[in-house]
């Protein structure tokens, strides 16, 4: 059992989870993930590691409430214990001195790019961070990210940022203004990663994405997280999660992610009715 040190709602639908897991913290590297189970009867889900504290022995992840398991997680609080918190899993992100790196993040990806930005900065890169939020009230970890970024940009559909652009428009205008970008990283929902890759493709900027297929065990056994990269089947859990976004078969990934949508909806409706309703 792993003890929860902190579970807070950062902004609507996004929660930060800090768990006491010294062994995981000791080995965590940017780009890796953990497998989590909120209760003994629940399913296992992967969460990208957003930060760790080796001294304190804690690991932090940010997740979005987007299904039964994440809703269950969001109901836990400091002091509660979760039966499964396995990691770090997956290959760490490649960290080298590339020159200038553009990091695009949205949703839970805002937190997921943080350790990568920090490591890239430490490796001597110029870091441009591009955060996508629908509206200003959904922005979090701004200060944290500014500290590890040389430039901090926001794409939003909000008057506050005087913009109604999405990620690709920002990337295009960045490139149009002559910014030299040697490498890009995009983490967030599948659509954000796909859109970012489409925006960098014409300029031939290598763009790494952290793929998020449905995953069951996270250790290469089940094969649920298979995706096609360069025409070959790869497992996101052990061969990734980072892949070259320009080589990913996005149509397949979108389709596979919807495989159980109906069941997921029914499961969540059932859980809400039986666990959150007044009759629970």
């Amino acid at each position: 059992m792993a003890k929860i040190l902190r579970r807070e709602r950062l902004v609507p639908n996004l929660h930060v989870l800090e768990v006491s897991a010294p062994e995981v913290a000791r080995k965590s590297l940017p780009g890796q993930f953990v497998m989590v189970m909120p209760d003994e009867r629940g399913e296992r889900i992967p969460l990208t590691i957003a930060d760790w504290d080796r001294e304190k022995g804690s690991v932090t992840a940010v997740f979005m409430t987007v299904g039964t398991t994440t809703h269950k997680l969001a109901r836990l609080s400091a002091g509660d214990e979760i039966p499964v918190f396995v990691g770090p899993l997956g290959k760490p992100s490649d960290i080298q001195n590339y020159g200038t790196v553009l990091l695009a993040g949205g949703c839970f990806g805002i937190a997921a790019i943080y350790p990568i930005a920090r490591a890239l900065k430490e490796a001597g890169n110029k870091v441009i961070t591009l955060i996508d939020v629908k509206a200003g009230y959904l922005l979090y970890w701004e200060e944290k990210l500014r500290k590890v970024s040389d430039r901090f940009l926001v794409s939003a559909r909000d008057h506050r940022f005087a913009t109604k652009d999405y990620v690709p428009a920002k990337i295009k205008s960045l490139l149009a203004e002559g910014a030299k970008v040697d490498r890009a990283v995009a983490i967030g929902c599948t659509y954000l990663m796909y859109s970012a890759c489409e925006a960098t493709r014409p300029a031939g900027i290598k763009t790494m994405v952290s793929l998020n297929p449905i995953m069951v065990d996270g250790t290469g056994m089940c094969g649920a997280c298979r995706c096609a990269v360069e025409g070959k089947t790869r497992f996101a859990c052990v061969d990734g999660p980072d892949f070259d976004g320009h080589a990913v078969d996005w149509a397949e990934l979108f389709a596979r992610r919807k495989s159980y949508l109906d069941d997921e909806i029914r499961s969540l409706c059932y859980w809400e009715r039986t666990q959150l309703a007044p009759c629970a």
């Binding site: 969001a74 992610r257 997921e264 909806i265």
Partner: peptide, 19 residues
């Protein structure tokens, strides 16, 4: 948002959020 239609096609799963 100008992306709304494409986004709806691809983000079906986010109908499940709480807020």
């Amino acid at each position: 948002c100008a992306e709304k239609e494409k986004c709806e096609d691809h983000k079906a799963s986010i109908r499940k959020v709480g807020e």
